[in-house]
Every structure is written in C-alpha cells, then in structure tokens.
Design a protein around this nucleic acid. Structure first.
Lengths: 356, 356
DNA sequence: GTTACTTCTGTGAACGTTCCCAGAAAGCGT
DNA sequence: ACGCTTTCTGGGAACGTTCACAGAAGTAAC
C-alpha cells in the first residue's frame, strides 16, 4: 500500500532501532491513537489530558483506559510549539572545573531557584558551560525557545553568554552583576559593604598589619570585596599586601598566605576572599607555627561549611546563597508575567567566631 | 481586515506583554519571514540554516542578510517535532540538600558526561530532584520527548524515577546500580572489591581493632562498601563496630567516630565510607587527643579534595568520577545509535598516604 | 413551543519546522 | 538537437498538539 491513514497506530518510525533486525520500534502513540481507541475525538482526549471541565464522566473513563491501553504520553515539542511556551527555565552555570566542586554557593543557589520554580510549576534545567563550544550550544538552546527564561550564575566580565542573553531579550536574571554587563536585572549582595564590615571588625580587634588574599577579579564579587577591603583600611591600605588569584580556591589561600608571610613576616591579620581561601590560608599559618587568632586573625566570606570545619572556626560574612537563587527565580517569573523587573540586593551579616 | 497572510511578519502575539499598554511584543520571526524578506522560499532558507549543499552563493548571502535583518532564530520546538529528536540528554541528580554541596563526585560526573555529549553535539540538561513534586515533573519532562536519553546519578533503592525511566524505554544509563532496579544499563565501580582492598591494607599495617563508619545503605555504594569491609575482616568482623548513617557527610564522620571510641576506646583503625566522613572522623580523633596514624589509622573513599586537605593526608580509594560520567554518557549515546548497551565496571586503585 | 442557558463533543486551523518530490536551469558530451 | 547529469529552487505534506468555534443535546423557565 502506497499510502496510509494519518491516524493508524501501526505506522512505523522512519528510523528503526536497528540493533535487532527482527524487531522494529513502533511509533509513539499520539492523541489520535487514543481518540480512535476510545471512540472519541482528539478534542475530547485533549480536554481529558489537560484536566479541563466540560467532559462527561463516561468520556473521561473511556479516554483514560484508552491512554493506558495504547501507552500514550504527550509530546511536549508539539505542545510547546502551539502554546509558544515551555514552562522551563534555564540555569546557566559558567564555572571552571575546579570551582564546581569547591564552591558551596552554587548548590544552594540551584536549590533555592528550584524550589521557587517548582512551586510555580516550572522545570529548572541546568546547563553547564565548560568550553567555548558549550557556550555556543547553550546560547542556541536558550534562543530556540526551549526555555521561557534564564538565570545566569557566576558570569564573568563581558561574558559572551551574557551578551547573548541580552540580545535575545528573553526574561533573565543574573546572580551577581558582572561589570560591563549593562541593564540586565540581577540579584546580589553588597560585596563592598559586607567586606568593609568584616574587615572593620578585624581591625577592631587591634590588628594593624592586615593583608588580603583576593580572588576572581574578573567578577563583581571579587572586585567588590577588594574594594571593601581598600576602603576599610583607608590610608593604611598597602597594595603590597594584596595578592590576586584567579579563583576562590583552597590552594589560592594556601599559596597566598605563604607569600604574604614572606612579604610581611609580622602580619597580624588576613582577609580571605572566601571561606575556602581562608581555610587554605589557615592551614599555611598553622604549618608555619602561627597561632590563630592569637598571632594572626583571619576572616573569610560565605559562611559555608568550610567555616565550621576550620580549626578555630572562621569569622565570616554570611551570604544567603539559597535566597539569591530564590530571588533570581522570582525575578525571571516576574518578567514572564510582564511585571517590571527590579534589581534586588539581599542583606548579609557578619558572623563572629574564633578565628579573629 | 479580517484575515491575514500566514507569512505576514507583522502579526502580533495573542498575548501581549502587558506591562506597557502602548507597546506590544512582536511575534518572533519565522522562516517564512526570512523567506519573503530574501525573496526566496522556505525550503531554501531551511537549507541555508542547516548548512546543506545545493544552495547558490547568491541565495545564501540573501538569506543570511535577511536573517540578520528580521532577527530570525530557529524555533527548536518545531524542529524537534518534525525531526522526532531533541539532541539533548537529561542528567538527573537525586540528592538530598546537604550532599549537593559535600559530594565532590557529582561535579566530576557532570563534567565528564558533558564533555562526551558536547563532543557528540548533544546538550546536557541537568534536572535536580529535591521534592516528590520534582520527581513527577522530571518524569514528565523525560517522557515528553524533550530529551533523547538520560543519565541518572545517585538513585536510591526502588527509586520512582528509576522505574519511570524503565517504563519509558528511553535510552538511559545509571551511574551506580541501585539494588532492586533490574536490567537498566549502568556504569559503576566494584565497591566491594575496592573496600576490601583498602581495608586489607589497613589490616596489613597491624591494626586489629577496626571499626567502620558506614553511610547511605540505601544505595549500592553504601551497601557494597560495608560488604567489602565485612569480607575483609572475615571472622574478626564485629557488627558492634559498624555505625550506620544516612548520608556521606563530615558530620556523620565526626559523630560516628565519637560513638566508636565510646564503644571501643582501644580502637586502632577506622574505615570511613567516604573522604568527607573520614575528615569528620579525623577531626574527632584529634580533638580527643589521638594521634593519626600512630594511635589510630584511618582510611577513606573517593580520593576527593578532602583527602589532600586532612592533617595527615588520607589513604583512600581513587574513584574515577569523571570517567563514570563519560562512560554513562557513552552508554546512552550507544543506545541511541541502536547498539547493544553493556554494563561497564571501571577500575579503582588504592592511594596510600599518611593517615594509615 | 419558543427561548435561553449549560454541558458536552467534533473539527478546522494554526504553531514553525523538515523532508521529499517535482521540476527548472545549467553544463556537457555526443 | 538531444539526452544525461548536476545544481538549485519551490511548495505540499507531515510532525502532534491546542485553541476557537460550531453545533448537538439536555434542562429550565416562560
């Protein structure tokens, strides 16, 4: 036969499964298959699957058993096409290898965003960017309409994905505000003020020779924490006592601390750009026989699990990572609903423990 | 006018953006808009966007400038619908809150899988399951045809998502083999043998009173490591010296160690079910004034960054997490290509450092 | 019996692509 | 002039839904 009915459920896929020549994969059941099995129409089946009113109890039962019989599951591509929405939100993680393991904030942001989106019945899909190739593919994914919006975390200065998102004009929110990325809604914390606050308290304990291990100056968080440090010290600021590393890592802390001690053996205070960095720095200090906090005071940033695991527990800045995730998700949803998107700054607090 | 051409680019969306009543969001440009702007047909535009041969240089240029002019981007839903594929692979992360931060394996698996899929031009989309509601939504997402396959990591015994995936008969691979989940392809390591190997070496250093802090017995990894411990000790196995915790956490290690010492103050060896657990255990030991490894030897599992950060560095089992991710991705791709899917066991090795 | 309303069902049209086929145009050898 | 191949283009059909509309059937009020 050279032609076939569009509604026949026995039509085969163009591509067979191939691994077993005797068996051929059947085409997925469609709404039409259900309709004919139930002796009803497409429309009624659609109404049942979508839980609409105005369908008789008998029809509903017939459709439901037909669905079970033919093994129907709705094709989302077709649905998304006609509805012009996907009810999915992308979350773009742009992190170098190492940080995906070390940065505890990412997980919290993710879960925070997920809980908000889940409640609004949106699916969170995380896309990670590891190579330049990924960057292109992720941009295509976002542009193709497979998501209704996007949350971008840890974007760097003039990140290609950031400009891509802006050009698409798709509802989006950044977590953190990469310098050089104009006018995209974001949520964040005031890194400058938070850094200044904790450094002030470090100074208040009488430290006078204070250095900083700064990281990730290609991000707002890195730059702003350094700026906070600078303004807290005021005229006492000594650029020689600031070391810069690309990433917030334990290793950066360990190496940075060693170098700081070389430059200034009588150092009595350190501001580490994150808790992981602080942990590394503390390890070096203790290896070299310095007592914390007696000889050297040290403070971190994040209030992550690192802070509690250090020998003397870390004084640090509590950063509400999960709230950042939640707020970013809310920002995206608001835009989808056509509301004005407002930048939101979340507050931080200083947690004073034993390390300084 | 009561009707309009299907190809008119000025048609408006059914739903306007609403936040600004004077402005109305224009419909996204379609391939037809490009075609009429370029004075060519749909077919030719499609050929250009898909980089097919048999299109003249002039046509190509005309199409490209038309695309730029109208701001066309391809609608993936329509494409997926007609092609019956999405070129996306889902990766399902089913972890309790805490582990998303503490388990370094997850990040490695993710990046491993991503690199393989990226090379094959598939988009990896990660779906996290945090609540029962998520579980349902993720299952719907997978079933809807939005992904061509799935990798499931850290599934637990009789995980609902596992059975859902099996029923769908979608190409899938597990990382680890949850007990009670039959005949789904998976990749994994031989946890029993690995645990036995490292415990044997612990015994070889002369320890005779050895306990274990076991975790996650609802997973194959947890059960098998315990089994390895049991068989390594043989008749010397003492169930009283095995403590069970739900999750692989630092806290489990710290608490477990305290309890072990209470039960058996002269304990001289500990097998911790993961490096994080070992780190917690070591902290407790040192707090209580025991020297590691002189008084008590301790070994972990994973060879994660924890291992290098412990005071005496951890002896542990090196688990190739990134390779697990790669292998799982390859397994899914193989199934998509119709090949037979084979279970793959990856080899581990014992890393001997200072902790025992 | 008419009118009006509610409940329920069927169907055409649309969503935006890709695929396939028909055929035009061009090149080339005879 | 003819046939054959290669290159290139256009348009019909299909993918599987949802939506809007039309109308049937039933109920209720007058």
């Amino acid at each position: 036969m050279s032609t076939f009915s569009s509604d026949s459920p026995v039509r085969q896929l163009r591509y067979s499964i191939g691994m077993d020549s005797t068996r051929v994969r059947r085409r997925r059941a469609t709404i039409n298959d259900v309709a004919s099995a139930a002796g009803l129409s497409r429309g009624t089946v659609s109404r049942v699957v979508n839980g609409e009113k105005y369908v008789s109890p008998e029809a509903k039962m017939a459709v439901e058993s037909a669905i079970a019989q033919v093994g129907y599951v709705r094709n989302s591509a077709a649905r998304n096409l006609v509805r012009q929405e996907s009810r999915a939100i992308g979350l773009i993680i742009h992190e170098p290898h190492s940080l995906l393991f070390e940065d505890p904030n990412i997980g919290s942001i993710l879960l925070g965003a997920n809980s908000v989106l889940s409640a609004a019945d949106y699916q969170l899909v995380s896309l990670i960017i590891d190579t330049a190739r990924d960057s292109q593919r992720v941009a295509d994914y976002l542009r193709g309409g497979l998501v209704d919006g996007a949350v971008i975390i840890s974007a760097r200065t003039s990140d290609p994905i950031a400009t891509a998102v802006r050009n698409l004009k798709i509802p989006a929110a950044f977590v953190g505000h990469p310098p050089g990325t104009p006018d995209i809604p974001y949520v964040g914390i005031d890194n400058v003020a938070a850094a200044r606050a904790i450094v002030h308290r470090l100074l208040d304990t009488g430290r006078t020779r204070v250095g900083m291990i700064a990281c990730a100056l290609d991000r707002d968080s890195g730059q702003d924490r350094l700026e906070g440090f600078r303004t807290a010290l005021g005229p006492a600021f000594d650029p020689d006592l600031v070391l810069e590393f690309p990433l917030y890592t334990y290793a950066a802390g360990a190496d940075g601390m060693a170098e700081l001690l070389r430059r200034r053996p009588d150092l009595d205070g350190v501001f580490a750009a994150s808790d992981a960095v602080a942990a590394g720095a503390m390890a070096t200090l203790q290896e070299q026989g310095r007592r914390v906090p007696d000889d050297v005071g040290i403070v971190g940033f994040d209030d992550s699990s690192w802070a509690l695991r250090c020998k003397p527990q870390l004084s640090t800045v509590k950063q509400p990572a999960d709230l950042l995730g939640r707020a970013a998700a809310e920002l995206v949803l608001a835009q989808i609903e056509g509301k004005e998107a407002e930048v939101r700054m979340l507050s931080t607090s200083v947690v004073w423990r034993e390390s300084a």
